[in-house]
Design a binder for these strands. Sequence first.
RNA 1: UCCCCGGUAGCUCAGCUGGCAGAGCAAGCGGCUGUUAACCGCUGGGUCGUAGGUUCGAGUCCUACCCGGGGAGCCA
Length: 447
Amino acid sequence: MSDARRVAEVLRAGRPGDDVLVRGWLRTARHAKGVSFLEVSDGSCFAGLQVVADPELPNFEAEVRKLGTGCAVEARGALVESPGKGQRVELQARELSLVGGVDDDYPLQKKRHSFEFLRTIAHLRPRTNTFGAVLRVRNAAARAVHGFFQERGFVLLHAPIITLSDAEGAGEMFPVAGSEEFFGSQAHLTVSGQLEAEIAALALGQVYTFGPTFRAENSNTSRHLAEFWMIEPEMAFCDLAGNADLAEAFLKHVIQQVLADCPDDMTFFDQRIDPGVRERLEHVVASEFERLTYDEAVGLLEGSGRDFEFPVRWGIDLQSEHERWLAEEKVGRPLVVTDYPREIKAFYMYLNDDERSVRAMDVLVPRVGEIVGGSQREHRHDVLRQRMAEAGLPEEQYWWYLDLRRYGSVPHAGFGVGFERLVQFMTGMANIRDVIPFPRVPGYAEF
RNA sequence: UCCCCGGUAGCUCAGCUGGCAGAGCAAGCGGCUGUUAACCGCUGGGUCGUAGGUUCGAGUCCUACCCGGGGAGCCA
């Protein structure tokens, strides 16, 4: 049984005089004439613990003096108040042993690396300040996602990853090799758990999925991945307004939790990655989200006096430049745009009485644009059949989806959130490939 | 997939109208009584993304391809 303590706990609660054992990896080693300073990080928090080693150690000359960045060490000794600046306490080593050395071609240096380079060494980048912080924030966000839904009585649904159904409109799918022989039909990796979530919502009332999804789209951008994690709540007896309210509460809850759980990591993002990100997040938590219909949004855009690359007229889908103008300049806070033209949205969205718009919604936030997309679903059997016919979809393939509209159908609604987009928004990281441990993008699936 | 920019030492980059391949950091060695991305000195380190082409001569000019970045489309 180990009596080792985690650096986060030692820095928070350690008292001078404590006898402490820590284990971790050296961020940096500073060797002066008769003393060595080792910064030991174990990943438990942003900061490392300064370990002081002096010549009394039996292995001082033979081992300690040769320690460098990346070495795995184990240090035991007394915690003392630090006479130097930069840390409250430090560990005066009584025993210091090298657990694993590093070859001299260790690629991580005690200096800034480009994120492009770090991606090529994804097996080592979690040891950097930035990726340690990203992974801790990602963890806190995932915990907050489950916490939000669990507190409200939502049931977690494990949607299938291999699927025969083609969730229309979501994008290109990865085919599963050998699926024809094995399953008797061509199967693909899922692009969305929404249709299965609807099944569960119409039995359990309120459910959510939180799992990997896959898009074979040839998208080369800083906001797209071929494999990403998506959160999809689905609620029975719920309309579009209730859906928007849930999305607003959800975003505020997750952001608030991350700010509370990861203050040091957020300070780093605020100072070094994206100045102002913390204030932006606090603003989102504090503000009421604006609600606009698509008609109103188009009216505002047309009256903006701005010369957009893509001209605005009723019927177009809103472009990135339009979304950002609305969120950043016109409204200055998150907003929910609802009731889009039927032609630009999916077949399963509820058709409004005007018959030209559907009950779709997008949540737009400053800097990122669309972060949540959802809708009230079409629950009327005859209307859904007609919409599928217009979209050219075969009823045979969606027999069970149509069945749900014949047996106890109720109004229901839900939305989807890309988890990495959310982490991007919260950390201010510019490229989505740098907020997932092992990014999959066109031409690249290493690690 | 489209438009623009880039690829030179382990990393970050400089290299002019074509003419001997450079710096800082890292690494190795040495020095320095308490450092904070410590500091000082010395040494080693190159298929200039790949393949063709032009030229007496190509890191530099041309073509194709690969990879990366920014933007766009698609979307989450």
